[in-house]
Nucleic acid binder design. Structure first.
Lengths: 132, 132
DNA sequence: TGCTTGACAAGAACTATTCTAATGTGATAT
DNA sequence: ATATCACATTAGAATAGTTCTTGTCAAGCA
């Protein structure tokens, strides 16, 4: 795929498969989910390859590493500025494409140079609120 | 200490030491930091006790489990609604006691019942921006 | 007194991630 | 087209953080 060329990493079949799986993916998959899926096509795939690729992509700003799930890292191929709505029961994550104008008041900034922000909304998704 | 009685868990010397360490602590300590500190007073202290106590406290809403640091859990004894400013280099976390009026627009809510939110601000703290 | 419940310590087990060493391979220059 | 080399890949070991298990004990209660 031509569109992946500009990322600036060496393209390999494994990496293309990972990129294809991520492209347009709205499920914020974990390394394990990526591995499970991609290793269907590449049964010899190693976990290290998944992590290496994800790290390389994150470094270049092509994906975001989410620190939302206490148990594992999750990755988001959508690098536009956006926020998340998380079901505290099933851990499903939905995107919230709204821009919030947020600034840290000087008194709390403590000399920090603020570079970004992320809003996590918590709630219960319809599916979970139904079953009990 | 009387003030701990109302938490509703059985108070033991180990738990009192953990509670004392957390009380007013603004450093958002990890389990490991709590263990290191409390085991000075109770050298036989086990990690399991730390985790059990933290879990019990979190369940009862007496502390918050922060999912901000990708490498470890961090705990916040301040359960008032507040937000955080995180140094992406040294992982220091400062509190931001500002109330933001945030609502998820209906189109993104997808039927979620939203129960709360948390804003993470990212930046570089003064100490880190100095040393290169 | 005996029962029940919950807390504890110690360490094993587990999970997610990172590292290592050996081998393989895509991209470029030849 | 081929050789080369830096970078990718693999398998498995290593690590870090967290959770689980087992046996023990103390406190509260019938």
């Amino acid at each position: 795929m031509e569109k992946y060329k500009k990322i600036g990493i060496k393209l390999t079949p494994q990496r293309l498969a990972i990129l294809d799986f991520l492209d347009g993916n709205k499920d914020h998959p974990s390394a394990e989910e990526i591995y499970r899926e991609v290793s269907k096509r590449f049964p010899t795939m190693s976990f290290a390859t998944v992590y290496n690729t994800l790290e390389a992509l994150a470094e270049r700003g092509n994906i975001l590493e989410l620190t939302i799930d206490p148990h594992k890292k999750r990755f988001d191929p959508n690098t536009e500025l956006h926020h998340h709505l998380i079901c505290t029961k099933c851990k499903r994550i939905e995107d919230v494409h709204t821009h919030f104008e947020l600034a840290v008041p000087g008194m709390h900034r403590k000399g920090f140079e603020v570079t970004g922000n992320h809003v996590a909304f918590y709630g219960i998704c319809p599916a979970c609120s139904h079953r009990t």
